[in-house]
Amino acid sequence: MDYILKEILEEPEAVKASIQEGKASYRKVAERLLASGCDRIYAVGCGSSYFTGILARYALERFAKIPTIPATAVDFYTYSLDTVDRKSAVIAISQSGESFETIDAARKAKGRSGLTIGLTNNAESRLAGISDEVLLTAAGPERASGTKTVLTQMLAAYQFALAVAQVKGTSYPRGELDRLVGELDRAVRIIQELQERLDEIKKLAGILKDVTNLYMVGAGPFFPLALQITNTAREIAQVHAYAFEVVEFRHGPLEIIRPGSTIVIINNSGCPLSDELARLAALGKRAGASLVVATDVADKGLVALADHLFPVPATSEILGAIAYLAPFHLVLYHWAVAKGLNPNEFRNIVKTWTEKAS
């Protein structure tokens, strides 16, 4: 059975169910977080869950004004544990709730931190069991490479940040917060509409088919989105894929761009760094790169420079940095199939590392 395609196509329903779960339970967790006197948050995980932690930082710092430190689970408990105190909260992120490094991080933080929160898709997991509070997603079972669980996990981090800001009440304009919370209900339809553009998705997969080194660039919350996409590209399309923050791409990586290189930029007009992306795009084209751009039509600087444009609907910045993952899951799937690969199979990794590799 083609599990990964089935699970990608389940993303709209998974998002719908997860938003409802968040509406029912995240505010209570937000209230407890603020009652703990928390003045900083550690967001820890492995792989795609670590990238979700980076997105959580953008959302929590922007809307709730709480300093947030993303870290890999191993780095956190090896190097950062001594900085954790009763004014710290730890959000341990694992879709399965069984990743052993993330469980170790949560276990070692418990008793030091004021609050340990598990963000997981599995209410019966070990992570849920040891956490003080749980942010549950409702993606359902997943067998192949992380797709619907990653998307709902990112959405949960954003939805929780909005809930914290609403409870706090003073960190962000109330009217704008209410608008962003209301916009969450558009996410399902946005993802459905993006997935329905199958001809454009297959065309983009065809453009990328013979690419051997993929460079993907994002700014702000679109950087963790680029990390998620390139990670899945390595897993299922088996391509060398690298994600960069926009300004950092100029500090070294730009030097290896040659005629025939491909740069993918993902963005929307809500991003305050759109001009930086347009400047980088111009530099990349000058070096001979082909430029693939996914953004909305109001992002005129990038649209004008694109060799290949995949237009996306305009949304607020962070919702776009989540919802635009859905069509790229299909792009990567069709890219893998076009290369003659089976995107359901791993060669060297497992879906969840539940014990140390040996």
Rank of each mutant, 00 (worst) to 15 (best):
G97D: 07
P253C: 02
A128F: 04
Q153P: 00
I256A: 14
C271A: 15
Y58E: 05
E196A: 13
V246I: 15
H329P: 00
I191A: 04
T315M: 15
G169N: 11
A237V: 04
Y58S: 01
L60M: 15
G146V: 01
E245F: 01
R279F: 12
A219N: 04
Y215K: 03
S94I: 05
I265V: 15
R258Y: 07
W335C: 00
S80P: 00
E101K: 07
P259A: 08
L332F: 11
L180H: 02
V211Y: 00
I19M: 03
I349Q: 08
L214T: 09
L291K: 04
L214P: 04
L273G: 01
L5Y: 07
I69P: 08
Y333C: 06
L5M: 13
G340L: 12
G111L: 10
Q228C: 13
V264S: 06
P70H: 06
Y324I: 05
Y50C: 04
K110Q: 11
W353H: 09
T354H: 07
D296G: 09
N348P: 00
T354F: 08
R250M: 06
L309S: 07
V312P: 02
Q195M: 10
N121H: 08
V29I: 04
N344H: 11
W353L: 15
N121S: 14
I54T: 05
Y26T: 00
P253I: 06
Y242F: 10
I103C: 13
L115A: 10
K356Y: 08
Y158C: 01
R40W: 11
I207A: 11
V331W: 01
D199M: 10
E317R: 05
L127M: 14
Q20I: 07
A336N: 07
A106G: 13
A157M: 10
V167D: 04
I190M: 09
V337S: 04
V293E: 07
A73E: 02
R27K: 15
T212E: 12
D39Q: 08
S171C: 11
Y77E: 06
P253N: 09
L319Y: 08
S48A: 14
L60A: 05
Y242M: 02
V15T: 08
G146P: 10
K16Q: 09
R234E: 13
K203A: 12
G284S: 14
V303P: 00
L330R: 05
E98G: 14
Y333P: 00
G111F: 09
G260L: 11
V74E: 10
S125T: 07
L319F: 12
F223A: 03
K356M: 13
Y158F: 15
E13W: 04
A233F: 03
N213R: 13
D2I: 12
K202E: 11
Q192T: 14
A139Q: 01
V181Y: 03
A157K: 01
T137H: 08
E255W: 13
T116P: 10
L155E: 02
E276H: 11
P313E: 12
I256V: 15
W335I: 02
I19A: 02
L341Y: 10
I322Y: 03
E11G: 06
V164F: 03
A71Q: 04
G270S: 15
P173E: 14
V167T: 10
K209N: 07
P253G: 05
